[in-house]
Write a protein that binds this DNA or RNA. Structure first.
Length: 318
DNA sequence: AATATTGACGCTCTTACGTCA
DNA sequence: GTTGACGTAAGAGCGTCAATA
């Protein structure tokens, strides 16, 4: 594993992740600002990230937070989210403004998306499911309204519409592309943007909402996998380091039992650390320095200690 | 001012369908 | 033609937050 500092990786991946390593305890806090009902929501999940990664090397705990994947207690701040507040490049916002006007004329959130002339009108995947409970958008009644004559992006016959059970909608490439583009701009939509996008795509707002929801989930899952891999490598690295330090400690203990170290070594092999003015021999000697700091970490991290994340060389190296 | 309620929203898990090898 | 894996749209339930009573 090439050694990459934790912060490097953090920046490279543009994520934040907190680990509880030993008793140190990284902490990750999500803060999701909420808006008033009917207000503009900018739910950019912000992440407070602090870690005390090396407070105790030998043990490392990874907390699972999900039942599905080996996810970790970590927070993600994707680059997509980081530019959430950017202005839409695509005309979602423009359309939002238009939609706002539309909405003022008609408070119905419904999308007039069933025009016969539409190039790709859409099949409602649950248009025949009377038991569908849509407590959210239902309130705006637009959902019910648009259940009617819907044609899939893939051509759907009448019997498809008549059939029982939900039919799976497949979005067209154009629809997907526009949604993707919009997602790059902002991973969440406010109601007006949702409305505008839905109008633009000839989809129901609920469909746009679901697409964004699923898209966020997919992004998170992907990122979690990446993070998991990284943490596995970190764990392996720390395990190796731990093993090595244990071995070193055993050797040092054995030496100590025999004789004071400096009495064993030829004077020529002894060196003095310029900053701490302790005796070391460059490889196995600095008992007080390396072993104490690597395992004890009682005080402020000493310069003898080199994290496995940031360097490859031994903690005994001074 | 403190508390309970309510509505909106996002997240997670799950289901069902379409596609492809 | 069948089957299983996979991707994904959508349903359901839950938690959180802010507004309101």
């Amino acid at each position: 594993m090439s050694k990459m500092s934790f912060e490097d990786h953090h920046q490279a991946c543009n994520i934040g992740l907190g680990l509880g390593i030993g008793g140190g305890g990284g902490q990750v806090k999500f803060e999701t600002p909420r808006e008033k009902p009917g207000r503009q929501r900018n739910n950019k999940p912000s992440l407070k990230f602090d870690y005390d990664l090396f407070s105790s090397l030998p043990s490392m705990s990874i907390q699972a937070t999900s039942r599905l994947e080996p996810s970790l207690t970590l927070g993600l701040l994707s680059s997509d989210e980081s530019n959430y507040h950017q202005v839409n490049k695509i005309d979602v916002n423009k359309a939002a403004a238009a939609a706002a006007c539309d909405q003022e004329q008609s408070t119905d959130e419904g999308v007039p998306q069933r025009q016969a002339s539409s190039p790709h009108t859409v099949l409602s995947s649950f248009s025949n499911n009377a038991s569908v409970k849509r407590e959210r958008d239902l309130g705006c009644s637009e959902e019910m309204e648009v259940e009617n004559k819907v044609v899939s992006s893939r051509v759907v016959s009448d019997e498809d519409e008549e059939g029982s059970g939900r039919k799976k909608l497949r979005l067209t490439k154009e629809q997907s592309a526009l949604l993707e583009e919009s997602f790059k701009e902002h991973s969440t939509l406010n109601p007006k943007q949702k409305q505008a996008l839905a109008k633009q795509l000839n989809l129901r707002p609920r469909q746009v909402e679901v697409w964004f929801q699923n898209r966020r989930a997919r992004t998170k899952l992907k990122q979690t996998e990446v993070d998991c891999e990284y943490l596995k490598k970190c764990c392996e690295s720390l395990t190796d380091e731990n093993r090595r330090l244990h071995k070193e400690l055993q050797e040092l203990k054995a030496l100590k039992l025999a004789q004071p170290l400096y009495m064993q070594l030829p004077a020529a092999t002894l060196t003095m650390c310029p900053s701490c003015e302790r005796i070391g021999n460059g490889g196995v000697g600095d008992i007080q320095g390396s072993a104490k700091n690597a395992f004890g970490m009682a005080g402020k991290p000493h310069h003898h200690f080199y994290s496995s994340f940031t360097t490859t060389h031994s903690s005994a190296a001074c």
